[in-house]
Design a protein around this nucleic acid. Structure first.
Lengths: 108, 108
DNA sequence: ATAATATATCGAAAAATATCGATTTGAGGG
DNA sequence: CCCTCAAATCGATATTTTTCGATATATTAT
């Protein structure tokens, strides 16, 4: 029940940090290796790893292991899922649940 | 420059909290008064006010004053803007900036 | 004016996230 | 097997966000 919301929140949390938005911008031009991201962003390796974990856990970014290197790229499916989710949480519905017929004790 | 990211982050931050996702779900069925939301959610008035401020500041929710009551509803424009933003931050581009031709000192 | 009511704001404390050096893990190379 | 290097994880700390009672503001009714 409330797990539904935390699952949804996880996806948007991935997008709500400035550093991660910067990382996504870099990934828009194509797959990047962690070491490249660290150099471009001038960020400690452990900090980058933290943000990449958040992005990957959300499904928006995919990672690919190649020997000792890890390559990251934007996931088409994950992005589409996020977009669909955003639309669904902001799209009006006609259907009425019990809460929609809720009558306030005040006059509003 | 980095203000661009914080502006974008603000919009996604509005969506990354479970309580706010619940509030949005309630607003999907139509405009609601603050007092109704407080009653349905069983949340202290000041807590609701905080979340409504975050939602309104992001542009995703609009508020309408009517006497002593405040009515909230999902903003069509704000939602569309958020959706467009999400798509833009996750859509690949061909164009190359200087960072895209970055050559790593390693062999990756 | 005074009182009552709805909501916004304040402020302090709690909870969640982010930061980053140190350590561990895991994949080659010699 | 040992060494090196890339990346993940740990752990302690810093920062940000959330919570919520108390107070302020604003509107309406008496």
């Amino acid at each position: 029940m409330s797990d539904q919301y935390s699952e949804q929140a996880k996806i948007f949390k991935a997008l709500c940090d400035e550093k991660r938005l910067r990382i996504l911008e870099l990934l828009r031009s194509g797959e990047k290796c962690a070491c490249v991201l660290v150099e471009i962003l001038g960020m400690p390796q452990s900090s980058l790893a933290y943000h990449m974990k958040v992005l990957c856990d959300s499904g928006i970014v995919d990672c690919r292991q190649e020997g000792k290197w890890t390559h990251y790229r934007i996931s088409r499916d994950g992005s589409r899922h996020a977009e669909t989710l955003l639309r669904s949480v902001t799209t009006p519905v006609q259907a009425l649940g019990s809460e929609d017929t809720f009558t306030c004790t005040k006059q509003c």
